[in-house]
Simulated assay, not measured.
Amino acid sequence: MNLLTGATGLVGAHLLAQLILNKEKIRALFRTENKKNQAISVILKYDITSQQIEDTVEWFQCDILDIPKLESAFESVTHVYHCAGFISNSPSDYKMMRKVNIEGTANVVNLSIDFPIQKFCHVSSIAALGKPNVGDEVTEETTIAEDQKKPSAYEISKYGAEMEVWRASQEGLSVVIVNPGIILGDGFYDSGSGTLLAKLKNGLKIYPPKITGFVGVYDVSKIMVQLMNSPVVNQRYILVSENLSFKEVGESFARLYNKSTPKTRLKPWMLYIAWFFEVLRSFFTSYKRQLTLEVIPSLFKDSFYSSDKIKKELQYTFETLEVYAHKIYKRS
Score class of each variant (00 low, 15 high):
residue 62 C to Y: 03
residue 31 R to D: 05
residue 179 N to M: 03
residue 218 Y to C: 12
residue 77 V to D: 03
residue 151 P to I: 08
residue 66 D to L: 08
residue 314 L to S: 01
residue 77 V to M: 06
residue 320 T to I: 01
residue 325 A to M: 06
residue 223 I to E: 05
residue 291 L to P: 06
residue 266 L to I: 04
residue 253 F to L: 05
residue 154 Y to L: 08
residue 231 P to W: 04
residue 86 F to S: 12
residue 60 F to V: 04
residue 311 K to D: 00
residue 211 I to L: 05
residue 151 P to S: 03
residue 320 T to W: 02
residue 20 I to A: 07
residue 267 K to I: 10
residue 317 T to S: 15
residue 67 I to T: 15
residue 307 S to C: 06
residue 270 M to A: 07
residue 228 M to T: 02
residue 293 L to Q: 11
residue 129 L to F: 06
residue 123 V to H: 02
residue 154 Y to A: 04
residue 24 E to L: 04
residue 73 A to K: 09
residue 180 P to F: 07
residue 217 V to S: 07
residue 64 I to N: 03
residue 190 D to Y: 09
residue 229 N to L: 08
residue 316 Y to A: 08
residue 79 H to K: 15
residue 178 V to P: 06
residue 300 F to E: 12
residue 165 V to S: 11
residue 317 T to G: 06
residue 62 C to F: 01
residue 220 V to M: 09
residue 170 Q to L: 14
residue 190 D to G: 09
residue 111 L to N: 08
residue 13 A to T: 08
residue 120 F to M: 13
residue 256 L to G: 10
residue 224 M to N: 03
residue 172 G to A: 09
residue 309 K to I: 02
residue 136 D to C: 05
residue 79 H to D: 14
residue 131 K to L: 04
residue 47 D to V: 00
residue 2 N to E: 10
residue 75 E to F: 07
residue 176 V to C: 14
residue 231 P to K: 07
residue 251 E to D: 12
residue 313 E to G: 00
residue 234 N to W: 05
residue 89 N to M: 12
residue 58 E to K: 14
residue 244 L to F: 07
residue 55 D to A: 14
residue 29 L to W: 06
residue 214 F to A: 07
residue 167 R to V: 05
residue 117 I to M: 01
residue 148 Q to C: 11
residue 265 R to Y: 00
residue 249 V to C: 02
residue 81 Y to M: 08
residue 70 L to H: 07
residue 240 V to Q: 04
residue 278 E to M: 05
residue 98 R to F: 03
residue 159 Y to W: 15
residue 249 V to K: 02
residue 85 G to D: 10
residue 21 L to W: 00
residue 204 L to V: 06
residue 141 E to P: 00
residue 175 V to G: 06
residue 289 R to H: 06
residue 290 Q to I: 03
residue 292 T to K: 10
residue 124 S to L: 11
residue 100 V to Y: 05
residue 185 G to C: 09
residue 190 D to H: 14
residue 305 Y to M: 06
residue 40 I to S: 08
residue 41 S to T: 12
residue 314 L to T: 02
residue 248 E to N: 14
residue 138 V to S: 02
residue 188 F to M: 14
residue 325 A to W: 05
residue 251 E to V: 10
residue 272 Y to D: 06
residue 252 S to L: 00
residue 329 Y to K: 14
residue 103 E to P: 00
residue 70 L to V: 05
residue 170 Q to P: 00
residue 21 L to K: 15
residue 213 G to I: 11
residue 143 T to R: 15
residue 267 K to G: 01
residue 3 L to A: 02
residue 186 D to Q: 13
residue 76 S to L: 01
residue 98 R to H: 08
residue 95 K to H: 05
